[in-house]
Amino acid sequence: MGKKFTFYPGCSSEGSGVHLDTSTRAVMAKLGFELEDISDWNCCGASVGDLAAGHLPTAALSARNLAQAKEQGDQDVMTACAACYLNTHATNEEIRDNEQSRADLNEALAAAGKSYDGSLHVRHACEVLVNDVGMDAIKAQVSNPLEGLKVAGYIGCQTVRPFAGTERGGDYSEYDHPSFLDDFIKASGAEAVDFENATSCCGGSVAVMKPEQTLHLMHKILSEAKEKQADVIATPCPLCQTNVEMYQDAINKKYGTDFNIPVVFHTQLLAVAMGLDSKKDAALHQNIIPADKLKAMAK
């Protein structure tokens, strides 16, 4: 392999999703990929940028990141965050395909002496694992299979749905019953429980603003994970991970439940299964609800 990507870590990589960042880098390195960060990246605009400032300024955020990525070379851009992927990918397509947007965004970029033509490919790390690596190659790196660990694969929304129909997004799965997360779980040697709520919404940024309106959504997800006796929930999305983990207290209070289910990233599972360090590579110490069973399996 040895393929190189320009990597866009995104804001959560320095905060609530630092364990996604750490474990993604560890797993990608183990699989022989080289990641070079966008040298001076900024926020992608998340899902509220357009409400605050409108579409064009929000797209300009991603345009700046893409212009920098292009300066660093023609290799594909990769990100592990669902929202970062969504915005960066959408802006890339907009610049490539929409003449008016290309002109507008280049006019904005020109204010800082930059330009971008939409010629890069923007990839989600999960999609790279499926299409460029493949399950066989992942399994080949698994030296510490997670036998006996029951995992509820929770994909969420933005990792699949927005781009199920787009150029590369549609390649690796469809949006109602995508199989790739369960494939990762199985590749790690763990058991993937049949999880109906795999693509149910956790509430996204509305959960951050107005948790009281979205607790029922997360309650549904947690209830099924508990009913299916999952030891952990695994997700590829940093916002899903944080929401479903940190609101368990509030949900318990509201519904009289006693959820205490660890929520980890798929890359944390893979890192442990690949025999990598539980702290330095899998960052298991950064889950607020500790994934003790997974931790005990780590080498």
């Binding site: 400032a53 409108g54 579409h55 064009l56 300024p57 797209a59 300009a60 955020l61 345009a63 700046r64 507008d104 965004l105 006019e107 904005a108 970029l109 020109a110 204010a111 800082a112 930059k114």
Partner: peptide
């Protein structure tokens, strides 16, 4: 500079 320009174009 980029964002101010984008706001202006919008």
């Amino acid at each position: 500079a980029i964002l101010e320009k984008a706001v202006e174009i919008q």
